[in-house]
Design a protein around this nucleic acid. Structure first.
Ligand code: MN
Ligand code: MN
Ligand code: ZN
Ligand code: ZN
Lengths: 143, 143
DNA sequence: TCCAAGTTTAGAACAATTCCAATTCGCATC
DNA sequence: GATGCGAATTGGAATTGTTCTAAACTTGGA
């Protein structure tokens, strides 16, 4: 059986070394914290979370690690208006739903054919390499 | 014949006074400059453009005017990643295509039914009031 | 064991935006 | 046509999220 990306720290060392980078304790911890609590935290929130486990880590390092993970395509940035960048370890193609009441961000999986349809809608002189879709609205608590 | 929104400064005074606000020279100028050059300028760019016509205007006022126009729904903010907010006077529902080479932003009109389809794709506990769609890619110069 | 390159760190710097307090503007009333 | 008053503008200070810098630390391999 071919190992699928298991969303655990295994893929981390691999993808990092693919880019000629090291799997440091800080990078592993930052990545693990994102997988553990998939609520699209900001850098400051990640900092607060990892500090409990590694009290000496610095905010600059958290920013560095996050940027590294983004570059290795292990995580993605999520931006909304001008507020702090948030981070998402969900690598499937998906949209983001911003709950305007709570500020929470939820992942919304979208069928791949739909995204293709969307790209095909562009004028012929536009060639899209990526599409970002963001919903704004309110979500009912699910009981 | 019923006057349609004519994208000229006429609608401005109306929509402003609807919100209990005045149509000041600064607000009119900022709005006119956005209509004149529809390239999604930043606040600083708007500032540079209007200064040629009103050398005494301040950057703070440009920010104030832009915010006011957004609140009156005469223009819209366009954000990408964490770069400066840009402003768009196109009120039709449309997506934005970011040319990664040039940094230019182009409006892409999308069929309304498509946007409805998109919203209908959400889980039933999500109620979207707005959708934002951003394409990234390159565009060929049209001759 | 030692080295060079990679990484982390604290704090300074930066850039976009917002805030603030003082002045100016402009409609309404006298 | 002056006066009053809230709205709007202004320059500069403050804020905030992020990046930069330079020094210290770590590590895999010669
Ligand atoms: Mn990015
Ligand atoms: Mn807005
Ligand atoms: Zn996500
Ligand atoms: Zn636009």
């Amino acid at each position: 059986m071919i190992a699928q990306a298991t969303n655990s720290s295994e893929g981390l060392a691999q993808k990092l070394s693919d880019s000629g980078l090291r799997a440091t304790p800080q990078r592993e911890l930052v990545y693990r914290s994102l997988l553990q609590q998939r609520d699209h935290p900001t850098a400051e929130e990640v900092f607060a979370r990892v500090k409990t486990e590694m009290p000496t880590i610095s905010l600059a390092t958290v920013y560095n690690c996050l940027e590294t993970l983004v570059q290795c395509r292990l995580i993605r940035q999520v931006n909304h208006e001008r507020s702090s960048t948030r981070y998402c370890p969900n690598l499937r193609p998906h949209a983001h739903f911003h709950d305007e009441q709570t500020g929470e961000i939820h992942d919304v999986d979208l069928p791949a054919p739909f995204l293709d349809q969307l790209k095909s809608m562009l004028p012929t002189n536009f060639h899209a390499s990526a599409v970002e879709i963001t919903f704004l609205g309110k979500s009912e608590k699910n009981s």
